[in-house]
Amino acid sequence: MKMNTRYKITRHDAEGNPTLKLEECQSFFAAKSDFEYRDFYSVTQDGVNMKINGHFFMWQIEGVEIPFRFFEGEIYVAISHPAVMEKTMEVARGMEANYIEG
């Protein structure tokens, strides 16, 4: 199984603190018809279902849901397909933010 590379979409203030706000993200993604907001992410693997509470902006590619997760002033996404990387760059540009591995 190939490991996903995790990226984060982020903006920082002069002290290096993340500055993205949940309300800003909700407004940004609400204007995108290809994203859906959820307050949890559910995944099943090997017959075990796991539910993670949080703020998720869900995007789909080839029938697979890709969670963009807002957490502590940043948005995290696992890059598993070249189209996900393209979408991550698009979101970062739209939010006037950077995308970095991590």
Results as ranks from 00 to 15, higher is better:
E36I: 15
P18Q: 06
E62W: 12
N98V: 11
R6Y: 12
P67C: 05
L20K: 01
S27A: 15
Y76A: 00
Y37Q: 10
G63T: 06
F57M: 04
M1H: 15
K87Q: 08
Y37N: 08
Y99V: 10
T88Q: 06
A97Q: 02
R69Y: 03
M85C: 05
R11C: 04
E86I: 07
E74T: 13
Y37E: 12
R69T: 08
K21H: 09
E65D: 14
A31Q: 12
G47K: 06
D34K: 05
R69K: 15
K87R: 08
Y41N: 08
E86V: 09
V84H: 00
A97C: 04
A31W: 00
D39E: 15
L20Y: 02
K51G: 00
Q45N: 08
R6L: 11
E15T: 10
M95Y: 04
P18A: 10
W59L: 01
E90K: 07
F40C: 11
F40N: 15
H12F: 14
K87P: 02
S27T: 14
I66Q: 01
V43Q: 11
Q60W: 01
S42V: 13
K8E: 14
Q60F: 00
R69M: 14
M95W: 02
F40G: 10
W59C: 05
N17C: 10
L22Q: 06
K8F: 15
V48A: 09
K87S: 05
V43A: 10
Q60A: 02
M50I: 12
R6T: 15
H81L: 06
E24A: 10
S80P: 05
H81W: 06
H55R: 10
N4A: 09
A92N: 03
A14D: 15
N17Y: 07
M50V: 11
E101A: 14
F28C: 02
K32Y: 07
F70P: 03
G102I: 10
A78R: 03
V84A: 00
G63W: 06
Y76K: 09
N17L: 14
W59Y: 15
F71E: 11
K51E: 12
P82C: 02
R6I: 15
R6P: 06
N53Q: 12
M85K: 11
E86W: 05
M95R: 03
V77C: 04
K32W: 07
M1Y: 12
S27I: 10
T10N: 09
F56I: 04
E65F: 08
Y7S: 03
C25Y: 00
E15L: 07
E90P: 01
N17M: 14
M1C: 11
Y99L: 09
L20I: 03
I9E: 04
Y76Q: 10
A83M: 09
E62L: 13
W59A: 07
M58Q: 05
V43T: 12
G54M: 08
N4Y: 15
